[in-house]
Design a binder for these strands. Structure first.
Length: 583
RNA sequence: GCGCCCGUAGCUCAGCUGGAUAGAGCAACGGAUUUCUAAUCCGUGGGUCGCAGGUUCGAGUCCUGCCGGGCGUGCCA
């Protein structure tokens, strides 16, 4: 990629200019903040001059004089206090366009050292529907897994479903007393939720019911055959329905190892932690306290109370003998490291669980695991009142409901345009556009900030949306459809018009973007890039007519169209969004 | 109380390890179509980047304090 090439040449130029870099200093090359100055820029001369108390402008001149990459850059200039600006030569751009067309990965280089990365995301609960609150983890996790795989990592996706927990006491009791078999066949999750809610209400009215539920839970935990069978059926029915949802979302998992998968490992794990002195007993529970290895302010097991530090241990076994999700998470780590040889584990889970993960990761390190754990946190989707969507409150919007509404609206737009001859095709187009719109609404957003859920946002088909990007792709295809196979593309590629060059440089930057997404695990960088690419293509499309042109100009533009279509399709694919040939 | 996160245009949001005149979309207004899909393009207006200090050639970005909001903080996940 150009940025890496420039970085290489610039580093050499600093050395050739006789500048020795301070320890730990790395030269920066970034996209130009304003394309009037160039395609790429470096601020390193200014930063370095400051550190070394030199004149930044003079240092920049020195480096510029030593910079040798005539084949890559048509222009190197210095501006302001010492910005180094680089313009990529039309020849290099043309070469890159051809590389994108020839390469399966659109010219995106693979990482030097592929790693085995487990991505843990989505994690819905059994006997509960997926609601909009699951959007973030599901879409972000899927996207990051796709990108990681795309750049050459070995990726294992694992859906850590919530298939074990205290709610099963109530569900089992409800199953035995309130279940409607017909309704269960119709919509299993819906019926399970109904039963759960009814029992939940009953326990509040009558403490005796609560006792019965607790009894059912204990029986389940002790391996009672009837209750185990009911639980297994709940899991089976829910997963069956979830698979359909994931199917419509184009999301796949390599594994569905839910919490229950680790049940047998929990007891021995706690005993081992006790034996190794990592965990201790406290008030009847087994907990992990601080080991004092890190500074108090960095210690996840300490919290400041007034002017002293008070312990906030991770509890791994309750005083009643029950285990908690910290226990399960530790057992899960052991499995992923031992069985899958994971180098990294990414947890795509909301930011409220920050402390929990800090503790779990710290405990895992104390257990001797050097695996790199990352909590890929995200903000909350808020209700119209600005408060969190609560899982319990029932006032949530279903994930499928949102998708269906989006598809319906897209279908109306498709009908209006009459872009496809028959019904089945229009349905397919509407699904692509509607589903894509919902995904894009999420993925184009910075994951760390909260945002208010709005139908308008999720369903918008105008502006910076998936339909806009898909439309750009459709336009690339329409041109080739018009040619009806009557074209023989050659290697002739001469970029002369500003719009052509702008498009070519944008295409080239897919490589940088694909890698940048993983630096901070931010899909919105990819979405922003694709939006810019589509925007640049639309401008090119208006400025440079393709089919009316001839000779090399025509061939060049056709190459640009082909490359744009290819990158858009690949990029949207990384967001988990499909494309369509017409719309 | 303490910790973490957030506050940017009327609304929804970008803003990459500090960089050039703070950008998009929606909404508003004005243009563009005998030509490759107008779900498009081009343009106009719109800002005390919560407030006050500080660091420096340069701060939306880093530091301190304050205001406002959210989340978390020993036996739910």
């Amino acid at each position: 990629m150009f940025r890496a090439q420039l970085h290489h040449h610039l580093t050499a130029a600093f050395a050739a200019a006789g500048v020795s870099l301070p320890e730990g200093f790395s030269i920066d090359v970034s996209l130009a903040s304003d394309t009037r100055f160039g395609d790429y820029q470096s601020n390193s001369a200014m930063v370095l001059a400051k550190q070394m108390k030199m004149n930044p402008r003079a240092l920049a001149e020195q480096v510029k004089g030593a910079f040798a990459a005539d084949d890559l850059c048509s222009e190197v200039s210095i501006a302001g206090p010492g910005f180094l600006n680089f313009r990529i030569s039309p020849e290099a751009l043309a070469g890159k366009v051809k590389t994108i067309l020839a390469d399966d990965n659109c010219g995106v280089p693979a990482v030097d050292k592929p790693r085995t990365i487990v991505v843990d995301f989505s994690a819905p609960n059994i006997a509960k529907p997926m609601h909009v609150g699951h959007i973030r983890s599901t879409f972000i996790g899927d996207c990051l897994a796709r990108v990681a795989k795309f750049v050459g990592h070995k990726v294992i996706t694992d859906n850590h479903v919530g298939d074990w927990g205290t709610q099963f006491g109530m569900i089992i009791h409800g199953w035995k007393t309130l279940l409607n078999q017909e309704a269960l066949k119709q919509d299993a999750i819906h019926e399970l939720v109904r039963v759960y809610k009814e029992v939940n209400a009953a326990t509040k009215a009558d403490p005796a019911v609560l006792e019965i539920c607790k009894g059912e839970l204990v029986k389940l935990q002790q391996g009672d055959a009837d209750n185990t069978a009911i639980w297994q059926e709940c899991v089976r029915l829910t997963l069956e329905q979830l698979e359909k949802v994931y199917g419509t979302l184009d999301i796949q998992f390599d594994h569905y190892l839910g919490e229950s998968f680790y049940n047998d490992a929990l007891g021995p794990l706690v005993e081992r932690l006790l034996k190794d002195g990592i965990a201790t007993e406290s008030d009847g529970a087994v907990v992990i306290f601080s080991d004092g290895a890190s500074k108090p302010e960095d210690d996840p097991f300490l919290i400041r109370e007034g002017d002293q530090w008070k312990p906030t241990p991770a509890i791994i076994r309750k005083s009643d003998g029950g285990f908690l999700y910290a226990t399960t998470d530790l057992a899960t780590i052991e499995y992923r490291v031992k069985e899958w040889k994971a180098d990294e584990v990414w947890y795509v889970v909301g930011s409220p669980q920050q402390l929990h993960f800090k503790q779990v990761f710290a405990a895992a390190r104390r257990m001797g695991y050097s695996t790199e754990f990352t909590h890929i946190a995200f903000g909350s989707i808020l209700g119209p009142d600005g408060k969190m969507f609560k899982t319990r409150s029932g006032e949530t919007v279903g994930l499928l409901e949102v998708i269906e509404e989006a598809v319906e609206r897209a279908r109306a737009a498709v009908d209006e345009k009459e872009s496809a001859p028959d019904d089945a095709q229009r349905d397919e187009i509407a699904r692509t556009i509607g589903g894509g719109a919902v995904k894009y609404a999420e993925l184009s957003q910075n994951r760390l900030t909260d945002y208010k859920f709005s139908w308008e946002k999720m369903l918008s088909l105008q502006g910076n949306t998936a339909p806009y990007l898909i439309n750009a792709y459709v336009r690339t295809r329409a041109i080739f459809r018009k040619l009806d196979g009557n074209v023989q593309l050659t290697g002739d590629c001469e970029l002369t018009e500003a719009a052509e060059k702008a498009l070519a440089i944008k295409l080239a930057q897919f490589a940088e973007t694909a890698h940048d997404v993983l630096v901070d695990h931010k899909p919105n960088l990819l979405a922003a890039y694709l939006y810019e690419l589509a925007n640049t293509y639309h401008s090119f499309y208006e400025a440079c007519h393709v089919l009316n042109s001839t000779g090399t100009v025509r061939n060049t533009r056709l190459l640009l169209c082909e490359a744009t279509g290819k990158v858009l399709k690949a990029g949207l694919g990384l967001l988990g969004i499909r494309t369509t040939e017409r719309m």
